[in-house]
Every structure is written in C-alpha cells, then in structure tokens.
Design a protein around this nucleic acid. Structure first.
Length: 273
DNA sequence: ATGCAGTCCTGTAAGC
DNA sequence: TGCTTACAGGACTGCA
C-alpha cells in the first residue's frame, strides 16, 4: 500500500510515541510474512530501548540501544500500531511486543501479508534484506546520477521509477503523478529521454513527494496513520485513479494502461508520447 | 538487460 | 440477494 510519503507519515507519527521506550515480550502469529522471522529473534528484543525511528525507502527502521535494528516494511496493507494491551488485537495481527512500563504494545497488522519484519543484529552490513541494492533517497539523487541511470536503461521510464535500486521510495501513485507533472509519457524509454526532461522529472518527483508528505500521504482505501487518521493527497491526484476523468489541466480524458505490470495513468495530451 | 506472467495474500467493488 | 471476477499503494522469481 504505502509509498514513501505514507511511510514517512507513519514514521513521524510513531516517533514521539515510541522513542525511548523499551520493548518487552514478543509474540508472532503462525503466519509468515514476506521475510521469514527467525524465532531466535524473540529473545533478543526484550529490554531493548528504541533510540531512533527512521525511514529508508519504504522501510521503517527502529534502531535499538545496542546498535541492532528492527525493520518493518508495510507492503500493501501493513500497519504499525501502538495499542492498549487490553484492546483485542485486530484480525491479521502478526507481531505484538509489549512496551515496558506501560499498558501499551506495538503491533503489526497486515491482511495481505506482503509486508515484512526483519531483525538485524548490531554490526550487520544491512538493516533489512535489500538494503545493499537500494538506490538513493530522492533528495540525495544528483541530477547527473539520475540522468545517467535513466539513459542507461532501455525500458519504460515508469518501470525505471518503480525500480527501488535506482530511486528509493517511489511507487505506483507517485510515479504516475511525477510523470504527469513533468509531462513525460510513461511508456517512453529511459534511453530516449533528453537531459532537460530527466531533470524536469527529477524535480517533479521531489515536488510531488514533498507535497504528499505535507498532506500526510494518500488514503485510497485503507491507509491510516496514528490511530485512524487519513492522508489527504488523494484529493490532489492529477492522474492516478482518475481513469476517464477530465485532465485538470486540459480536460482530455485520462488514460489508463498496464505498464511494468502496474496500472498506469496519464494524460495523452499533456504527456506526449 | 528487459518485459511479462505468475507468485505471495485478503478485501472490496463491480458485474451478472 | 447472492455468486464470480477483477483488481489493489509491493516486490520477488522464473522464463522467453
């Protein structure tokens, strides 16, 4: 479900509620998530203080006091919640950890189980499985670096934007929105794009992500942060989820195609192929 | 190197 | 009212 702005929203919401708290007893459901949980990790978490909560790409990183990390990927439907331990766990709760000296616990709920939980001991090379292959955060990506990566790829620019090894955190919604903002047609091959367009796209990605973070992400069906708060960026979509609706810039009907295995939305007039 | 289909899952909405 | 089908914000694998 969530892309960079939604994950950032969750991180900012959790940070004041979770920082400097200690994990207690851990319980896992019988269902496995995308990454297999090693039962040995259960014993390593209790007593450890959460000393920072950061985001890398679409991963949430809980840094623990001994230098280890508990990393969480929300997949499509994952939610990381702080609930009263007295409250019955929601269906599809796969991880629960007491928060010491309180009546609350940290819970991971994920109906589709595309999400992941990972523990990385202090001194591990990586804090989550694909970290070594992950590309730069959008704000760290240099104009030259992005231009080089895009022009080297003989595949659609949409597929390039979804590739986490090129740019971290962009998903289907924000790829479509950034392509619209920069007036780039999603099927164009990276190798065919000219430097001015690539730079325009890079800036559009930053602008779209920054605006979405300001609006606390997008809630289509089921993205919530905090307890039950919704994002607001869905009201500002120019193309995503607007099939056959009039383009907000030129009134042409928004088109939808299947590209890189994903539903892709664009304006045929504003984004010339 | 790339696209594409299939895979992991459940929930929702649309179509009949 | 049902039942069936398609599709969903992610990301991996295997195969042409």
């Amino acid at each position: 479900m969530p892309e960079l702005p939604e994950v950032e929203t969750v991180v900012r919401s959790l940070r004041p509620r979770l920082l400097h708290r200690q994990l207690g007893e851990v319980r896992l459901s019988k269902f496995s998530l995308r990454e297999k949980w090693n039962p040995k990790w259960n014993a390593l978490l209790p007593g450890k203080e959460i000393v920072s909560i950061e985001r890398r790409g679409k991963w949430i990183l809980l840094a623990l006091a001994d230098g280890s990390h508990l990393s969480v990927h929300l997949g499509m439907t994952g939610r990381l919640l702080i609930n009263s331990a007295a409250e019955a766990a929601k269906p599809h709760t796969h991880f629960q950890a007491n928060l010491l000296s309180s009546t609350e616990e940290l819970r991971f709920v994920d109906p589709r189980r595309f999400g992941a939980l990972w523990y990385a001991a202090a001194g591990s090379d990586t804090r989550f499985p694909a970290e070594a292959a992950m590309g730069p955060e959008p704000w760290q990506l240099t104009p030259g670096g992005f231009q080089e990566a895009v022009q080297a790829a003989k595949r659609s620019i949409k597929a390039i934007l979804l590739d986490q090894s090129i740019i971290a955190g962009v998903g289907n919604i924000y790829a479509d929105e950034a392509l619209f903002q920069s007036r780039v047609h999603p099927t164009l091959l990276g190798s065919n794009l000219k430097p001015p367009h690539i730079e325009k796209l890079r800036k559009a990605i930053l602008k779209v992500l920054e605006r979405a973070i300001e609006k606390h992400g997008s809630t289509i069906i089921n993205f919530y942060y905090g307890d039950e708060e919704s994002g607001g960026f869905q009201n500002e979509f120019m193309v995503y989820d607007r099939y056959e609706a009039p383009c907000k810039r030129c009134k042409t009907a928004i088109q939808r195609i299947r590209l890189a295995g994903r539903s892709t939305h664009f304006c045929p007039l504003c984004q010339p192929g």
